[in-house]
Amino acid sequence: MTDLKVNLGGLAMQNPVTTASGTFGFGLEYAPFVDLRRLGAIVVKGTTLEPREGNATPRMAETPAGMLNAIGLQNPGIDGFIKQHLPALQPLGTPIIVNISGNTLEEYGQLAAMIDACEGISAIEVNISCPNVKQGGIQFGTVPTMAADVTKMVREHTKKPVIVKLSPNVTDITEMAKAVVDVGADAIALINTLLGMAIDTKQRKPQLANIFGGLSGPAVKPVALRMVYQVHRALPAVPILGMGGITTAEDAIEFIMAGATAIAVGTANFVNPKATIDILEGIEAFCLQEGINTLQDLVGAAHSS
């Protein structure tokens, strides 16, 4: 039996399979299909200081081998999450990672402090790259100094592992990664969605009410894989949570070989509600077949040749 345990910047996980924020709700939505205790961790829906109602509809458009979304961070607020959703997740024993977004630096600090004080949350994923909200969001994620400021603010307010989720909508992803690691990020999550759009030709208008949205799904996988590879090459000691179009165990193993310590399943959850478990079992089968004793040995394997 392969040892699948990994450590993501101080977060111990029984296996590398987790969920991409926004695609898995608060976890229990998938309980009919997935034994949530088997997951390495659960990353919940992006959370903000105050409750948000999000964008107008349509919020989603299907594209070839992918989809665009512009939800706009609809969520019950951090208080709402802690009171209404977290208690039901606790008995699972699965590490819970909360994804946070702020409009201002101060909000990031407040969110980090609240999570730091909350025993049931294992780590923070800092969303500096949501393409779908007007304030903050994307700017924090595309200017290295601003990304560093957000990370520093979160770092100052928590001792829990800080995972910074980067936007792929930049010229040099390694520059962003270095900027946030320098000020205390424990791990890097990549990638968030790629900014895109679709047009309804009959109505002559954008398909999304928000005009632009984030592209995800198999269509983005080669881009995501390339960025994971680049960041691992530039910062080999920094753990990466890799994601972007992972649909099969083969995809997940590619990300691990490119340098990801853990992987997140996102859009694939919509295509197959038990995708996380199918991918986990596929990783186990691959390791058995290849005679791999410790999964950790595979991390970055594609770099050695």
């Binding site: 709700g25 829906k45 999000g54 509809t57 919020r59 989603m60 939800i71 919509f270």
Partner: peptide
């Protein structure tokens, strides 16, 4: 009817 994605209340695509 709204453009739907997960159908499970997770993704928040289909709201009214």
């Amino acid at each position: 009817e709204e453009r739907m994605c997960c159908g499970l209340g997770a993704c928040l695509s289909c709201v009214c």
